[in-house]
Simulated assay, not measured.
Amino acid sequence: MWIYNNFINYAAAVPESLIFGVILILIVFILIITFTIYYLYKIISSQRRRKYTGSEAVINAVGTATNNIAQNAGGFITIDGVSWEVINSGEEDIEKYDKVLVTGRSGLKLMVKKLKK
């Protein structure tokens, strides 16, 4: 009988503000974990993207001519906002703003040909 008489109702003994505080801490902890996982995913996925370095990385890329380029003559194109010096290795002249395909490189110059529309 002594055990039952000294039983304390712990649910009634814990103040509601403490329960609210614990729930609030759990919610904040879950939000921090969620954002951390999201940003770790973004960082890891950005590291797996294609590396853009040097002229080898732009072979088979499509660019835009920034000037008229005659057959077997030099000129300039832009690929992703970067200007490249090129040689027209195609069978037709390239007009300004035409789309060109990078087919290879010769030294520091890229070899391009005009894309068909």
Score class of each variant (00 low, 15 high):
residue 1 M to P: 09
residue 2 W to P: 01
residue 3 I to N: 09
residue 4 Y to D: 10
residue 7 F to Q: 05
residue 7 F to C: 00
residue 9 N to S: 06
residue 10 Y to K: 01
residue 10 Y to N: 01
residue 11 A to K: 08
residue 11 A to C: 07
residue 12 A to P: 02
residue 12 A to L: 03
residue 12 A to W: 00
residue 13 A to E: 01
residue 14 V to I: 11
residue 15 P to R: 10
residue 15 P to M: 04
residue 16 E to W: 11
residue 16 E to G: 14
residue 17 S to A: 08
residue 18 L to Y: 12
residue 18 L to H: 13
residue 18 L to Q: 12
residue 19 I to C: 07
residue 19 I to G: 06
residue 20 F to K: 10
residue 20 F to G: 14
residue 20 F to L: 14
residue 21 G to T: 02
residue 22 V to E: 05
residue 22 V to S: 03
residue 22 V to Y: 11
residue 22 V to Q: 06
residue 23 I to A: 03
residue 24 L to W: 01
residue 26 L to K: 09
residue 26 L to F: 09
residue 26 L to E: 08
residue 26 L to G: 10
residue 27 I to L: 10
residue 27 I to A: 09
residue 29 F to I: 00
residue 30 I to F: 10
residue 31 L to A: 10
residue 31 L to V: 10
residue 32 I to V: 12
residue 34 T to L: 06
residue 36 T to W: 11
residue 37 I to M: 12
residue 38 Y to A: 11
residue 40 L to A: 10
residue 40 L to T: 07
residue 41 Y to T: 06
residue 41 Y to G: 04
residue 42 K to E: 13
residue 44 I to G: 07
residue 45 S to C: 11
residue 45 S to H: 12
residue 45 S to L: 14
residue 45 S to I: 15
residue 46 S to M: 13
residue 47 Q to W: 13
residue 47 Q to S: 15
residue 47 Q to N: 15
residue 47 Q to F: 15
residue 47 Q to Y: 15
residue 48 R to E: 11
residue 48 R to F: 12
residue 48 R to Y: 12
residue 49 R to Y: 04
residue 52 Y to F: 15
residue 52 Y to P: 08
residue 52 Y to Q: 14
residue 53 T to A: 15
residue 54 G to Y: 11
residue 56 E to R: 12
residue 56 E to M: 08
residue 56 E to C: 03
residue 57 A to M: 06
residue 57 A to F: 07
residue 58 V to N: 03
residue 59 I to G: 09
residue 59 I to N: 03
residue 60 N to H: 14
residue 63 G to P: 13
residue 63 G to K: 04
residue 64 T to D: 01
residue 64 T to E: 06
residue 65 A to H: 09
residue 65 A to C: 06
residue 65 A to L: 07
residue 66 T to A: 00
residue 66 T to S: 01
residue 67 N to R: 00
residue 68 N to E: 08
residue 70 A to N: 11
residue 71 Q to H: 03
residue 73 A to R: 07
residue 73 A to E: 03
residue 75 G to R: 03
residue 76 F to E: 12
residue 76 F to H: 11
residue 76 F to R: 14
residue 76 F to P: 00
residue 77 I to C: 05
residue 78 T to G: 03
residue 79 I to E: 11
residue 80 D to Q: 15
residue 81 G to E: 07
residue 83 S to E: 11
residue 84 W to G: 00
residue 84 W to T: 00
residue 85 E to R: 12
residue 85 E to L: 02
residue 85 E to A: 07
residue 86 V to Y: 02
residue 86 V to S: 03
residue 89 S to D: 09
residue 89 S to V: 06
residue 94 I to M: 00
residue 95 E to L: 09
residue 96 K to N: 06
residue 98 D to T: 08
residue 99 K to V: 15
residue 99 K to D: 11
residue 100 V to A: 12
residue 102 V to F: 09
residue 103 T to V: 14
residue 103 T to S: 11
residue 105 R to C: 05
residue 106 S to N: 14
residue 106 S to I: 05
residue 107 G to E: 08
residue 108 L to T: 03
residue 108 L to I: 05
residue 108 L to K: 03
residue 110 L to M: 13
residue 111 M to W: 07
residue 112 V to Y: 00
residue 112 V to G: 01
residue 114 K to R: 13
residue 115 L to Q: 02
